[in-house]
Design a protein around this nucleic acid. Structure first.
Lengths: 189, 189
DNA sequence: CGAAAATTTGACATGACTCAACTGGAGTGG
DNA sequence: CCACTCCAGTTGAGTCATGTCAAATTTTCG
């Protein structure tokens, strides 16, 4: 299963056999059942997860205590509370498995060591972070400019298949509307 | 003025004198007057700007042809159409000076060469991209969870001083409301 | 000074929310 | 295998935050 990680990295930088060995060595693997928490709000673990299979999502709680999904992570994606991961603050997010999932995890400390040992990885993480930034800014734009209905349609086309795995109320929250209103949008087609 | 760039980079990675020389060599400097465009929608320049002094902002046009600000860049900040910069697509954004400004620019091609010559810079750009991603995700959350008034207050505290330099209609668009409504919020205090 | 742009105001319209009630399917225990 | 519960999803009535449009006012700057 660690091969998936090497495959993902190889899309952006080429690793020698020795480098691959070091990368593999730095990660631990784990399995999660549906609804199992990987990261819980308030923890201070500083760990980053690569999704091999399944689907996770990160969320916070809004002012009314409702779940507020932030990011969905599918195979070959990465997930954590980035701010907490980088700064060693206690996590403000939780991360939970939507379906049973396999992940590979690395601690911040291990990652920094790995950067020293395999500097090419700086490039890999620079690139995926750049891509994540492009998506996040795109999302900002969509939130500002699209109507609720357009955001829903956008979501469907951005995450084909997620509609089957994710309860509608999470999708509603993710696109910034209430479940009731999403229900009406769906009825009207 | 290129010293400012070295200063900014030095906050995250240490450069030798020779590396500093190479960095400085790769950038060109430019001055912009108020309202002058640095990057125009549709161009294919693949250039990245570091702000030495002044203030720039990037924007697109919304469905009604209104300016839609995306990012404000102040001294020690970076700005470009990131997607176009990375992928060599024609730019969908424009970048304009809000006040007379000094900037340092580098082309994508030069930047990639520079990464080969000074690998430490991969780290620098990884770090600032990570930070930008944290901010962008924070902004997503704010857009989803805060009321118009709260977003305005957030803006004021995130960008102290920008209120003086930026027309209110741009601020309104940036926080996702109409200038009329912003006007009402400000009256009510 | 005068024109153009930015900001403000007010009347009215509407997209999206709230709340409460209802429906239906998924699990659970007897 | 049924009865029960529980939660996700749906509906509808009423409300509220924010938008629209048009006009008045102020500011900016050539």
């Amino acid at each position: 299963m660690k091969l998936e990680l090497i495959k993902a990295i190889s899309k952006h930088v080429e690793l020698t056999a020795e480098e691959q060995r070091q990368v593999i060595h730095a990660f631990s693997s784990a399995k999660l059942k549906r609804k199992e928490l990987w990261l819980e709000e308030g923890e201070k673990t500083q760990s980053l997860a690569f999704v091999v299979s399944g689907c996770l999502y990160s969320y916070s709680f809004d002012s009314k205590g409702q779940i507020n999904p932030l990011q969905f992570a599918r195979p070959h994606g990465w997930v954590t509370d980035l701010y907490a991961y980088l700064s060693n603050a206690p996590s403000t997010l939780s991360v939970e498995a939507l379906t049973s999932s396999e992940i590979l995890t690395i601690t911040r400390e291990e990652q920094l060591k790995l950067f020293e040992a395999v500097p090419k990885l700086e490039r890999y993480f620079r690139i995926i972070t750049e891509n994540a930034l492009v998506s996040s800014r795109k999302r900002n734009l969509d939130l500002l400019n699209l109507s609720a209905k357009e955001r829903y349609e956008q979501f469907i086309s951005n995450y084909p298949g997620l509609l089957q795995e994710v309860p509608l109320k999470l999708i509603a929250k993710y696109i910034g509307i209430t479940p009731e209103f999403l229900s009406k949008l769906r009825r009207e087609g």
